[in-house]
Design a protein around this nucleic acid. Structure first.
Lengths: 211, 211
DNA sequence: TAGATTGTTAATCGATTAACAATC
DNA sequence: TAGATTGTTAATCGATTAACAATC
C-alpha cells in the first residue's frame, strides 16, 4: 500500500460498484464523471478525486469504460476473491443470512452456522446444518474460515469474537449490539440495526415535518 | 430547529445512547467526558462538542448525570415516541425483522408484513400475519403507518416506496440494494448489507495483512 | 485539429482537536 | 475555597469542491 486511502472514499466504493454494475447490465459502455455524478447525486469532482486515489481509470476526452472501471473497483474491494463465512447464532437473523443467496453471487460462501441451543442443532438453515457451539473450535481448526458473522446476543459477542481471533478468523461481520474491541489488524464491519432505526426516528422527529 | 445539526453528530448519538444505557444498567450515576471518551475510544473534546449541539447537559466540576444524559439523548433521537412499522416483503430478512423483539423495546411496533406471493399470504411471521400486497393501499389508508421497512427485491423497491409516500408513509428503512430517490422531506435509512460486506472484504485484502 | 473530459492542484468548507476561561 | 470539569473559542486537520492545464 503506497498511501492510506481515507475511509470516506472506501465507504463510497461499493456504491460506485453498484451503479457501474447496473450501467453494465443496461448496456452502457462508457460514462463521464459528469453523467455518473448526475445519476448518483454527487459531484463530478468527487468522483474523479475518488478514482484517482487508485491511479485513475479514465481517459481524457472519453470518460470511463464502464466494464473496466467496474472490474477495477471490484478488485480494489477484494471481490475477485472468495471468502469462507461462518455464522455464529442461528436466530432469525442468522438464519436469514444463511438463506440469503445474494452473498454467494459475490463470493461470500457460508459454510456453517453455529448455535448453543440443542433444539436448533441439527436443523437446516439454508443449505447448511446448524452445528453445536461446542464444535466451533474443532471446525475452525479443520476448515478455512475468513469471516465470522456474529448474530448472537451482545453479552457473548466480544468473548466469542476474541476466541475466534485466537483460532485464526480474520474478519468479523458484527450484528450484535456491542463493540467487539479486537486487535487493530482484525477488520470489523458493524451492522447495528438498532442504531440505524434510531437515526431514522431522529429524522422523523427533527427533519421530516419542518419542510 | 435553531441550527442544523451535522449528520456526523447524528450518526454518533445512537452509540452514545447505547453506552449510556449500559452504564445506567451497571449502576454508574455520573461520568465525565474524559471517562466516557476512554470507554468509547473517542476524544473527550468531541463528546463535549457533540452534546453542546443540543445545549449541554453537564455540570462543571461534576460531569454528566448518566440517567439524565441518556434520557435527553433518547428524546433527541425520538425514542420517547412510538412508531408503527410495516414490512414489505416476507422473505428471510423480512421475517427476521418481524420476529426481532428488540425493536418493540424501543417503541418500533410491527403491525403488518406484506408479500406478493400467495403461498406466503396467511402465514404468520412473528406475531403478525403475512398480508397480500393487493391489500397494502387499503391497509395504509385505515391504519397509522410511520415507517415502511423494505425487504423486497430491488427492482420493485423505488416504485413501491413512491406509492407508499403517496399513501402517507413518512419514513423508510430500506434493505433493498438500490437508492429510493424520494422527496427530501421523507427520511430514508439504508441498510445495504452487500455494501457492508464489500467494505469488509476491502479491509481483509488491504488492511489486515500489512500490520 | 477541435472538443471533451480527465488528472491534479489550489481554494473552500466542515469536522475534529486543543486550549482555557467560566463555573459548579 | 480549591479542584474538577464543563462549555466554548481558536487552531488544526481532513475532506470536498472548484478550476484548469494536460491530453486523448
Amino acid at each position: 500500500m503506497e498511501k492510506k486511502i481515507s475511509s470516506a472514499v472506501i465507504k463510497r466504493l461499493p456504491r460506485y460498484y453498484r451503479y457501474l454494475s447496473e450501467l453494465l447490465e443496461g448496456g452502457t459502455e462508457r460514462i463521464s464523471s459528469q453523467e455518473l455524478s448526475q445519476k448518483m447525486n454527487v459531484t463530478a469532482s468527487q468522483i474523479r478525486q475518488d478514482f484517482n486515489n487508485f491511479g485513475g481509470f479514465g481517459q481524457q476526452g472519453y470518460g470511463y469504460n464502464v466494464a473496466v472501471l467496474r472490474e477495477e473497483i471490484g478488485k480494489i474491494l477484494g471481490l475477485d476473491q472468495s471468502y469462507q463465512v461462518i455464522i455464529i447464532g442461528a436466530g432469525n437473523l442468522g438464519q436469514a443470512l444463511a438463506n440469503y443467496a445474494g452473498f454467494e453471487k459475490r463470493g461470500f460462501l457460508v459454510s456453517a452456522i453455529f448455535d448453543i441451543n440443542p433444539d436448533k442443532v441439527g436443523n437446516m438453515a439454508g443449505k447448511v446444518e446448524v452445528l453445536d457451539m461446542k464444535d466451533l473450535e474443532s471446525y475452525v481448526a479443520s476448515h478455512q474460515v475468513d469471516i465470522a458473522a456474529l448474530t448472537l446476543p451482545k453479552a457473548k459477542a466480544p468473548e466469542v469474537a476474541a476466541d475466534l481471533v485466537k483460532m485464526g478468523v480474520r474478519a468479523f461481520w458484527n450484528f450484535a449490539a456491542t463493540d467487539l474491541n479486537l486487535p487493530d489488524n482484525i477488520p470489523v464491519e458493524n451492522v447495528h440495526l438498532a442504531e440505524s432505526l434510531m437515526r431514522l426516528s431522529y429524522n422523523i422527529v427533527n427533519v421530516s415535518q419542518d419542510s
